[in-house]
Nucleic acid binder design. Structure first.
Length: 201
DNA sequence: CGGGAGATGGGCT
DNA sequence: GCCCATCTCCCGA
């Protein structure tokens, strides 16, 4: 049996949540909560936008051309964080899914802030509106204090974990192609909450 | 407002 | 040397 870990008001999702097809996991993480305890304080937000990247048959996936020093975490066990640096300025946070060796992960693209709003604003720079704190993959990493040091750690328990949140009915979920890629741009593996103001543009 | 260019640095060929 | 799962600012309307 799996013992789910409760921290404060949040209960971490069990490992079985990630041992499924990456597209299913991407859909199921909508409404879940990403939470982080750091030296600076606690921050958390509801996941409102995700994308699936699937192993060797998906040209947009970092894992498509095999294991490298950057992407090796994707080939490890599910339930770990894959964090990478992009465009010289930003980090992107993913969760590894499926079974070890497949090389698939869900990119978390946007959050609706729940806890630690002041800390988020401090990390992002003063003068930012709430709507601008976590409405994009690079923005949410900055607001949550996620960077390369988190690459490879588990998201099954603190300091960085994903917890169960609100249930989301299919009627509230929109599906589209993925953002910001060229290869594989026709594949509809982006999921987001309809009419949620924190979804990226 | 919406679109576009520039910033910026690591990964990979 | 080119590509990149992004963000911000600045411009024109």
């Amino acid at each position: 049996m799996t013992m789910e870990k409760t921290v404060g008001k949040y209960t971490a999702l069990p490992p079985s949540s990630y041992r499924r097809n990456v597209v299913e996991v991407a859909r199921s993480l909508l409404g879940a909560v990403l939470a982080h305890y750091s030296d600076e304080g606690f921050t958390a937000g509801i996941i409102v936008e995700t994308e699936a990247y699937r192993g060797s048959d998906d040209p947009a996936c970092h894992a498509a051309r095999g294991k490298t020093p950057r992407n090796y975490v994707m080939f490890g066990p599910p339930g770990r964080a894959y964090v990478y640096f992009i465009y010289g300025n930003h980090y992107c946070f993913n969760v590894v899914t499926g079974t070890e060796g497949q090389g698939e992960a869900v990119l978390i693209r946007a959050l609706e802030p729940l806890d630690g709003l002041e800390l988020m604003r401090k990390r992002r720079g003063m003068g930012h509106k709430i709507i601008n704190l976590t409405s994009g993959p690079g923005k949410l990493c900055a607001a949550m204090g996620i960077s390369r040091e988190h690459n490879g750690i588990t998201v099954l328990a603190p300091p960085l974990f994903i917890a169960s949140g609100i249930g989301v009915e299919d009627a509230r979920v929109a599906v589209s192609t993925r953002i910001g890629i060229k290869q594989g741009r026709d594949i509809p593996w982006r999921f987001y909450l309809k009419e949620n103001a924190f979804v990226s543009r």
